[in-house]
Nucleic acid binder design. Sequence first.
RNA 1: UCCCCUGUAGCUCAGUCGGUAGAGCAAGUGGCUGUUAACCACUGGGUCGUAGGUUCGAGUCCUACCGGGGGAGCCA
Length: 461
Amino acid sequence: MKPGIKQILTMPGNGELITVEGWIRTKRDSKGVTFLEINDGSTLKNLQVVIADTFPDYQSITRELTTGSSVTIKGKLIESPGKGQAVEVVAGEITILGTASPEEYALQKKHHTFEFLREIAHLRPRSNSFGAVARVRSAMSFAVHTFFQERGFVYVHTPIITGSDCEGAGEMFQVTTLPLDNIPLKDGNIDFSQDFFGKKAALTVSGQLEGETYACALKNIYTFGPTFRAENSNTSRHLAEFWMIEPEMAFCDIHGNMDIAEEFLKYIFQYVLDACPDDMDFFNTRISKGLIDNLQHIIKSRFKRITYTEAVESLVDARADFEFPVEWGIDLQSEHEKFLTEQVYRLPVIITDYPKQIKAFYMKINDDNRTVRAMDILVPRLGEIVGGSEREADLTKLKNRIVECGLDPDDYWWYLDLRRFGTVPHAGFGLGFERVIQFVTGMQNIRDVIPFPRAVKTLEF
RNA sequence: UCCCCUGUAGCUCAGUCGGUAGAGCAAGUGGCUGUUAACCACUGGGUCGUAGGUUCGAGUCCUACCGGGGGAGCCA
């Protein structure tokens, strides 16, 4: 493979003949010389190409070298006499692969808002911000795998299409091949026996239940894949299609669960700082000032661990003017979470032992019979970034909880079998990948950290 | 789904008391001996989101709908 611009920029400017391939970001003319900034996505940085007016067909060729056009340029790599860069290329041979009409090409060399760039999602990866997000997202994906693989976790592919109507994590997108203009009915209800799977199917809202089955065989597993929620939520923190990381560990309790989650987040943060210094510097200076210091501070600190009861006490003691009054039993609202992470602790906070009535049926019930072994990690600005728990391993208690939650134990027959045969204490958590990217990059809107966001009434690309 | 804000040139916005539109950037042309957010001069560019309504007259006021943003709920 020919070296990309990232590599070229590290080479000595000793006159070696090289080939640059990329897209023109800007062109600057002076009398007698034209400067191009070429970007190929390998790095945030551009490579400067110099064209002297002695170049054959100088006038006509520089006219076509507009922002956005694609080129192959052969030339000598030399030390730059200018101040802004160590090396530059003296153009010897220029091939214009594709022009980009300045009157029509939307992504001109000026500042654009993220809202505008969202409307040209097919071109926005050619901008600095979205190139940087793409590289950071890729590095973070790799870090997810290296973290778990280094620790012996098995990567399990849980299904995208699920038949269990009862994962309970949110509204589901239905999957069907039934003709929507002529749905077969039986006794007035939709006859799913005629559908592709012979029963009602949907896109997964979580791979957790399936993940537990593999943890109860391979001990430590993780999933990392797309997840779908048909919630009508329109916020900067929600997507209808997002990527989730869900580790599940057998022979592990809530404390081991918290340890892994904290270690994992710190690992990811450190990895990105090491792997993407230019991009992170860009986010630090252009998107969110103080971002890097904050990440480094978090990496060095121990996350604050408190129980739900302690959290409620501290919120009550604060006597802050909350819109939603605080009392034991309520689910913590955004304002409460922000108060804890931004005012009280100024660090990620792990809250454990929530009231059972505000948490899912599968969480292990504590001896007090009113709280469960849940653990959520809250971070400043974004709120909940991790949700997890030690799972109920006792068959009878789990059955009772299913009934208590108004669910039908028959629907969970295979899930209950995990407790019927060789049950073990186990725990796990789910982590929204895009939220972690938001946190690491400082990007405000979740729709700008995924290439093609899917959200309510949003499916153009 | 609810609350608030918003929609004017390719982009970001201004537009006063209701009198038929303006700036910066981008683009085009010309200039400038090496620029780097280049610089200087000039030029072109508008169905004021859509549909109604009030009015002699609507970018401006009213209503509905659509799009965008922020917050809330739900959650990851």
